[in-house]
Design a protein around this nucleic acid. Structure first.
Lengths: 229, 229
DNA sequence: CTTTACTGTCACGCATTTGTCACCTGCACC
DNA sequence: GGTGCAGGTGACAAATGCGTGACAGTAAAG
């Protein structure tokens, strides 16, 4: 059963982008372009998560959120609000009115996914896989823990997101650019070679005596993560 | 190697969105902002798919499509036209003039990808496969792996791209110039005889005791890759 | 405030890869 | 046999790609 995400966003380009990315991440999606449609869709099928733009035609995000909370089925459904930069007031009001988290536009997809997973886990733990195993490496994205051979390892935040991305797509080769998009986010500018450095740090962090290197370098192409034996 | 998609769209935001999403999906892309540029780019390198906006500066979508169809190389290239809502006339005319499918703006990315894959599968099935087998040779372009007889082999980047190109068009004879275009790229200048050297290296890399040579030399014409038994 | 942890960039060294040349080999034809 | 041409291949200098230690800037913690 795929988690069902309701996207409430009137700006077409953003809505499409969200739909596509969430679709790819394994969610089912629906789009509402205004507040009324949002309430309608939410009552037709109870979403597992709602992405709620704060500036909406017909009904404001605040109002939508308040009414959602009043209904029994959606009273605990996680809501992430999407606000424009610098709208401090909205943010606070939003959290007051029952939103669970907020993202300031423009935001990075990886971060949005991270918060999405965190919220959904809180609401309905069964919906998400918490711990992923590839070979002898075990990643617990809830607890932000990594173990190898039942040996706890310490990783920095970036190394963790990198590894998290790798174990979700084992065996596949990613170019530096793809990794930058997926791990750092599309809008940040960092040198491609920075990836190399973090790969190096990740390798070091994963190193255990007698164990091989699970990260494969593919010259002029990128890196891949695979099980070792 | 990667499927090559030509995006013909004068609206900047949409063009960028398409480029980003197709890039992420594993396509190579190019953008043309008007009809003339579209024809130019399409002749420089034959696209595997064309996304064609119907309202264009300089040359209309109809005209672009008609001229593409008249050329031999692009006479069968899949074309998806992008039309504004309610332009019934355009849609019908478009299909008459040789477009293969249409999408009405605004459209959803996942649907566009679905239609893209459907059309490309019809035109060139091998473009979409991740792992391709020809005889006892197996190429996994996602993991950048080559096996022969379940024996993993090591190839340099150029040898890999060369082999990748070959297995996607098994049996066909390519001239040195064609191989340079397809594997090295149109804009690089390298001696034609360099191909010979890389063919030699590829042969060496594919060599296994008791196994024949899958690359056939066609005197004064070029090379072809074929299954061996 | 000081300390600690983390990040992004750079420069250097090393190994692999690349394109080209020169010199062969094989083959067709006279 | 000789001749001319197309393709095979070893050698090599140059280019490229990658790993890594060092470093400075930043943010968080104490």
């Amino acid at each position: 059963m795929k988690p069902y995400v309701l996207i409430v966003e009137d700006e077409d380009a953003l809505a499409t982008l969200l739909e596509y990315n969430f679709g790819k991440e394994g969610y089912e999606t629906a789009i509402a372009v205004d507040g009324e449609e949002a309430l309608l869709l939410a009552s037709e099928r109870t979403p597992d998560l709602i992405l709620l733009d704060w500036m909406l035609p017909k009904l404001s995000g605040i109002e939508v959120c308040r009414r959602l909370r009043r209904r029994k089925e959606t009273s605990k459904t996680p809501v992430i609000m999407l606000t424009a930069r610098g709208d401090e007031t909205d943010r606070i009001t939003g959290l007051d009115f029952g939103a669970d988290d907020y993202m300031i536009k423009p935001f990075s997809m990886p971060e949005l996914f991270a918060r999405t997973r965190a919220l959904m886990r809180r609401a309905k733990p069964s919906l998400l896989e918490d711990v992923i195993r590839v070979g002898d490496v075990e990643v617990d994205s809830q607890a932000f823990r990594v173990r190898r051979d039942d040996q706890a390892l310490h990783l920095g935040p970036t190394e963790f997101r990198l590894l998290d991305h790798f174990v979700r797509h084992p065996g596949r080769v990613f170019s530096r650019e793809q990794l930058l998009d997926a791990v750092w986010g599309r809008d940040v500018y960092v040198e491609a070679r920075t990836v190399d450095v973090h790969i190096g740090r990740l390798r070091k962090a994963l190193k255990l005596p007698g164990k091989g290197d699970p990260i494969r370098t593919v010259r002029s192409a990128g890196y891949a993560f695979e099980a070792v034996n």
